[in-house]
Amino acid sequence: MKKISILLALLCATYSGFSQSALSLEQIIALALQSNYDVAIATNNISSANNNATKAQAGYLPNLNLNSGLNYSRNNTNLTFGGVVPDIEKDGVENTSYNVGVGFNYLVFNGFGRVHTYQSLMNTQQLTSLQSKIISENLVLDIVTRYLDIQQANLNLDAALNNIKISQDRLKRVTIGNENGSRNKLDVLSAQVDLNNDSLSILSLQTAIQKQLASLNTLMGRDPYTAIKVAELIPVPAQQSMTVLREQALQNNATLLLAQVAEELAMHQTAITESRRLPTVNMTGNYGYNNAQNGAGVVLSQKTLGFSSGLTVTMPIFNG
């Protein structure tokens, strides 16, 4: 009995040392949403999706490039001309040319592919936001479940501590009765077994509470062994009618909204694939300066400065 009392004292000391700073359910949820690693990753994914959901990513804007080039050659040249122009045969002829200009490329039409591409990017943005919301909701649900489990375990622990006092008193009385001859040895053993069971029940409850507290610390992005104590008050939300709850669930349920957006995304992806069967119209243009120097020939020097453009239509016929 003395050993059991010492064990209980150590367990109570460990439990009280582990639980020092009291946190309410609202505080735990706020800390978790702020520091949880899964929530942080989901937030970064939202930022990335927002950056991608632009018309520039969908191909609505033209490409503008600065182009330049330089060419040099040295060859033995033999030129034959018709008419009165004499033929030329010369070794070590050097030819140089260089150019610089600004060019653009603009996709005029691609079978409405970029329209559906932009809508797909917007759907992906919505999907990422809803996935982040689901992660946060699951986190809150996990916290509330563990919080209530701790509250229930604390109530059970209080009851177990009361039970062990009764078991200790019973063992004491039965032991005295056995010494006086009013109780037999079997009664003493039965009381001892009940006391041992109560001690194991306390140990099990305290271990379960510590595991749940460690899990709460992990969900809050903290060291599992950080001292923590949950407040004993349990907030009870105002009661609402089932009709109102059903309407709110249909309007705000993230999983349902996620399925709807995923369906829209699949439709746009299908439209993008079908757009590849239609013709593509592409416009190009360039404004630049060209200079060519020839070591032999009729035209020894040529310089140009101006604008050029073109329009290309591509119609897919067969691609396997």
Score class of each variant (00 low, 15 high):
89 E>C: 15
46 I>A: 00
231 A>Q: 13
52 N>E: 04
273 T>Y: 10
205 L>M: 02
260 Q>T: 04
9 A>K: 09
212 Q>G: 03
170 R>Y: 12
286 N>Y: 11
12 C>H: 13
313 V>W: 09
209 I>L: 03
293 Q>L: 10
133 K>T: 03
144 V>Y: 06
30 A>W: 06
18 F>N: 15
217 N>K: 00
108 V>F: 15
19 S>C: 15
88 I>G: 01
301 S>Y: 08
56 A>L: 14
269 Q>N: 13
262 A>N: 14
91 D>I: 06
122 M>A: 00
265 L>M: 14
100 V>W: 09
152 Q>A: 15
221 G>P: 12
261 V>S: 05
178 N>E: 08
131 Q>D: 13
148 L>G: 04
197 N>V: 10
76 N>L: 09
100 V>T: 01
111 G>C: 08
50 N>H: 14
311 L>Q: 00
194 D>G: 11
102 V>Y: 10
308 S>C: 07
51 N>C: 12
252 N>A: 01
184 N>T: 10
191 A>D: 10
128 T>Q: 05
52 N>H: 10
41 I>V: 14
243 T>D: 06
253 N>Y: 01
47 S>Y: 04
129 S>T: 12
204 S>T: 14
264 E>Y: 06
137 E>C: 08
103 G>H: 01
81 F>P: 13
98 Y>E: 04
134 I>Y: 00
155 L>A: 07
114 R>S: 10
142 D>A: 14
1 M>H: 05
155 L>D: 04
185 K>G: 03
214 A>Q: 11
225 Y>C: 06
247 E>P: 12
97 S>D: 02
37 Y>W: 05
166 I>K: 10
264 E>A: 09
257 L>R: 06
59 G>A: 05
283 M>G: 05
160 A>H: 04
20 Q>M: 10
29 I>K: 01
17 G>P: 07
250 L>E: 07
81 F>M: 09
17 G>Y: 11
64 L>R: 03
196 N>Y: 06
104 F>G: 13
203 L>F: 13
10 L>T: 01
182 S>G: 10
13 A>N: 05
177 G>Y: 02
238 A>M: 10
90 K>G: 07
228 I>G: 02
130 L>D: 03
181 G>Q: 00
104 F>E: 01
121 L>Y: 05
15 Y>W: 14
55 K>H: 01
272 I>C: 09
101 G>E: 01
171 L>H: 08
239 Q>E: 15
26 E>I: 09
59 G>R: 02
40 A>I: 14
315 M>R: 14
102 V>N: 06
254 A>V: 00
168 Q>T: 04
85 V>Y: 11
140 V>F: 00
109 F>N: 02
275 S>V: 13
82 G>Y: 08
287 Y>V: 09
215 S>A: 15
229 K>A: 15
146 R>Q: 12
16 S>Q: 05
135 I>S: 02
28 I>D: 01
315 M>N: 02
272 I>V: 14
42 A>I: 07
131 Q>P: 11
240 Q>D: 02
36 N>Q: 06
116 H>D: 11
177 G>L: 09
143 I>H: 00
132 S>P: 05
204 S>F: 07
1 M>Y: 09
72 Y>R: 11
91 D>T: 06
96 T>L: 11
315 M>L: 15
